[in-house]
Every structure is written in C-alpha cells, then in structure tokens.
Simulated scan of single mutants.
Amino acid sequence: MSNSYLRVVWVYPDLLSTYGDRGNLLAIAHRARARGIEVEPIGVRSDQPLPYQADLYLIGGGEDGPQAVAAQRLVQDGTLRQAADRGVPVLGICAGYQLLGESFVASGERCQGLGILDLRSDRGESRAVGEVAGESHPNLGIGPITGFENHGGRTHLGSAVQPLAKVTHGIGNDGQHEGAWAGHVVGSYMHGPALARNPLLADLLISWATGGRQLQPLDDTWPNRLREERLSALASDQG
C-alpha cells in the first residue's frame, strides 16, 4: 500500500470489543491523519470475510464464548494468518492476544488458536485486575508501557517470540512479563485503550504499516500527561 494511505481492519467488533478497545482504531486514525496519512477504517463482523488487502489488523478483547467463536472463524477464514506471514502488522489485545497463539482456554475448554505467535494461554488461580506497567523490550523503542488489565488467563511464551515488556506492576502474562511480539505482530493484555496510553506503540504500528516510514513527532502533551499521572501513581503505591 501507499505510504500515505492505510487500510486498517477492526476485526470482529461484534465479538471482540470490550473495555474501550475500539479506541486503538481511533488512536491509529488520529495519529496517522495528523501526519497527512489517509486512513480507511474497515470494521469486519464475524459473519464477513476479512479483506486480504489491508495494512494493519486490530483485534480487541472479549468474553470466553465470543473469543472461542472468533478464533474458530478466523482459523477457517485464514486471511489473518496469511497477512501476518506476509509481514502485515497485527495488534491483538487480551482475548485477541490469546487467540493469536497456539491455544487458549475458554469456558473450561482448550481451544485452537491461529498459531501466529509462539505462545499458549491457560487460566490463572486468580483474576488479574488493575493497572499493569512495565519496561518494554529495548528493540521496540517505545519506552515504558502502561495499561489496564482484566483477565483470568496466564500466557506462556515460546522461544520464537519476545515479551513486549518486563512487568514492574501488575500481572500481564505471568507476573514477570507482559505481552509478546514477533516480526510485526504484537499481543498485549493492556486495555486503556493501549494505543491511547502508549502513543509510541501506535506510531510503531503505523511505521510498520507504511513500510518503515519515518514519522514526524506530534504534540503529545495530553497523552504524556496521562502516562505520567498513571506511572507516577504506580510509583507512589510501590513507594
């Protein structure tokens, strides 16, 4: 696609769109358009085929039942796996993160994932609810991450992926690491929404989606103020 035009697919909003995750689509659109990049947002319901030609796919969170249905339909559709194999960026949040892996547990049953990321998810002894923060992988260049988590899953990473961040507050995958990434695919438990609270992650996805385009800085006064407030509050709690 053109470096000045993005087709952004919001995957199955009828099944996977909890805790304000649609804000990730809004954040991408806002930050791309502010740089003169035209954005075509495409919402694709679960009874529709995913478009093959897209520049970025976004998946949100959801409850166990809808997550299992979404995974089954995405496996049958095949487009998302093919897109990831071609290097098209994908962001999965919470349930959307888990279904990018090899398998996950929903409603007590182990379900097949898409196998895009080398990880598997199961259930933890307690639910992880509250703020999550961490130091992101240095190769990503996005600095500290901050978000809100609400999940019962625990995710175990394989050797073919890297953790998105080392946890400094909250649970994330397992109390030590949060999220995962490989190539141009990122998964995370962060709501908030994630890209509004972590604008550099949004910019990284935009850069990937535009073929590595160098993005000029934006006035991030308000996003940075929000981030500083949340990170400062966590630092005060730990102090």
Rank of each mutant, 00 (worst) to 15 (best):
M1F: 11
N3Q: 14
S4I: 04
V11P: 00
D14G: 01
S17E: 08
S17K: 03
A27F: 00
I28Y: 01
A29E: 15
A29W: 01
H30N: 11
R31M: 14
R33C: 03
R33E: 15
A34W: 07
E40I: 04
G43S: 14
D47H: 08
P51A: 12
A54I: 07
E63H: 13
V69P: 00
D77Y: 04
L80F: 09
R86I: 02
G87D: 09
I93K: 08
Y97T: 11
L99P: 03
L100R: 10
S103I: 04
F104Y: 07
A106W: 04
G113E: 07
L114E: 08
G115D: 10
D118Y: 03
D122I: 02
G124K: 12
A128C: 08
S136H: 06
P138I: 13
L140H: 06
T146M: 12
N150S: 15
G152F: 11
G153R: 11
G158M: 05
G158E: 06
V161H: 06
Q162E: 15
N173K: 05
N173Q: 11
W181I: 05
G183A: 10
H184L: 06
V185L: 11
N198R: 13
T210H: 09
G212Q: 11
Q216A: 14
D220Q: 13
N224Q: 15
N224P: 00
R227N: 06
A233F: 14
L234V: 12
Q238A: 15
